[in-house]
């Protein structure tokens, strides 16, 4: 199948996601969008704005307020020929659905030797930086990435938000789609397209650099790029890799990048202990050891419950914290 870029538009991330849902609903009558407040209200972040009006209540609809029910309902819809796209209103509100996600969504294909596919998407607004109250700012990716059978993606800009969501909806496998809340309003150029071409699983080098590699995903990518810009003024050339997909993980792109610079810092908002960042650091250590001039560093959230708004700036990876980690990469040997 071919991808045809039909037009370009400047959209915010939320608008790009909305456009991806709209295009998918228009192209495929089996696509269904549902969740809490996604109907006439258009979602608390307006990602589903206008979809019920355009496609009707059978295609985009509100459900009772029960996340396990939403996820389990999606399983049954997918078993019977539909492509459900469910919204979990906030990261921490997805936890009641956890059993359905881990015990059924992730395992159905394997359980039935490939006979029952679940082509469904669970959209989850995730991460902090928006001054949200407790339970609105969690970075829950490790729970999902640790579960075999799920794909886990996190866009970092409007263009990827559009294309990854199209890919996720077209995928024959369940996809946990993590939307960085703080980037919902960030604008960018988006290439729109028709047709399906599942392409989940590739990382991209977002910024070229020669001295060290910053590896980031989702909400941490803009911070990593900013850090690279600041470092450039000080004469240090930092490369930035945007993972886009946590599962499948693009070892080839990540290792190729790290091998080209010999130094690596992983940047992620989630608490660092037993995290995706830790997995990346371990993989890079195992696979790129002979190219490394220094141990892989992680810049992550602290191992604490997500802090209240007035303290969250201390939890989030910052430009300074990233540059401090870069400074620690044993330059004296260089």
């Amino acid at each position: 199948m071919t991808t045809i870029a039909v037009e370009h538009e400047t959209l915010s991330t939320a608008q790009a996601l909305n456009r991806a849902l709209r295009d998918a609903l228009a192209e495929d009558p089996t696509v269904l969008v549902f969740g809490e407040d996604v109907g006439p209200l258009g979602g608390v972040f307006r990602v589903t704005d206008g979809l019920t009006a355009e496609f009707g209540e059978d295609r985009c609809f509100d459900t009772p307020l029960a996340e396990a029910g939403i996820a389990g309902f999606a399983v049954g819809l997918a078993m019977n020929g539909m492509r459900p796209v469910m919204e979990m209103q906030f990261d921490a509100f997805a936890y009641p659905a956890f059993e359905q996600v881990v015990s059924h969504i992730a395992k159905m294909r394997n359980r039935t030797r490939g006979r029952v596919e679940l082509p469904l998407v669970m959209r989850v607004p995730y991460a902090g930086g928006i001054g949200g109250v407790e339970h609105h700012c969690d970075s829950s990716e490790a729970y999902f990435a640790h579960t075999p059978g799920l794909h886990v993606v996190a866009p970092s800009n409007p263009a990827d938000a559009y294309s990854l969501l199209r890919d996720a909806i077209a995928s024959p496998d369940p996809v946990v789609f993590l939307e960085p809340k703080k980037l919902y309003w960030a604008k960018g150029d988006v290439a729109l397209r028709s047709g399906r071409e599942p392409g989940i699983g590739t990382a991209v080098v977002r910024r070229q650099g020669t001295d060290a590699t910053l590896i980031a995903y989702g909400s941490s990518v803009p911070v990593a790029i900013e850090a690279a810009e600041v470092a450039a003024r000080d004469g240090r050339s930092l490369q930035v890799v945007d993972l886009r997909s946590l599962v499948p993980f693009d070892d080839a792109t990540v290792c190729g990048a790290v091998e080209s610079t010999g130094r690596a810092v992983v940047v992620a908002e989630a608490a660092g202990f037993a995290s995706v960042a830790s997995e990346i650091a371990a993989r890079v250590g195992e696979r790129c050891f002979h190219s490394l001039s220094a141990p892989v560093r992680r810049v992550t959230g602290f191992d604490i419950p997500y802090p209240p708004p007035k303290l969250e700036h201390l939890q989030l990876p910052s430009v300074d914290r990233i540059l401090d980690a870069v400074d620690d990469l044993q330059w004296e040997d260089a």
Partner: peptide, 26 residues
């Protein structure tokens, strides 16, 4: 499961019930 339209047997309790509702709604 599609041969006789019988969902797979699993051991978690009640988790198959929302699936049943989804199949029915579809």
């Amino acid at each position: 499961p599609y041969e006789r339209n019988v969902a797979p047997l699993t051991t978690p309790l009640a988790t198959q019930l929302p699936h049943a509702v989804g199949v029915a709604h579809a």
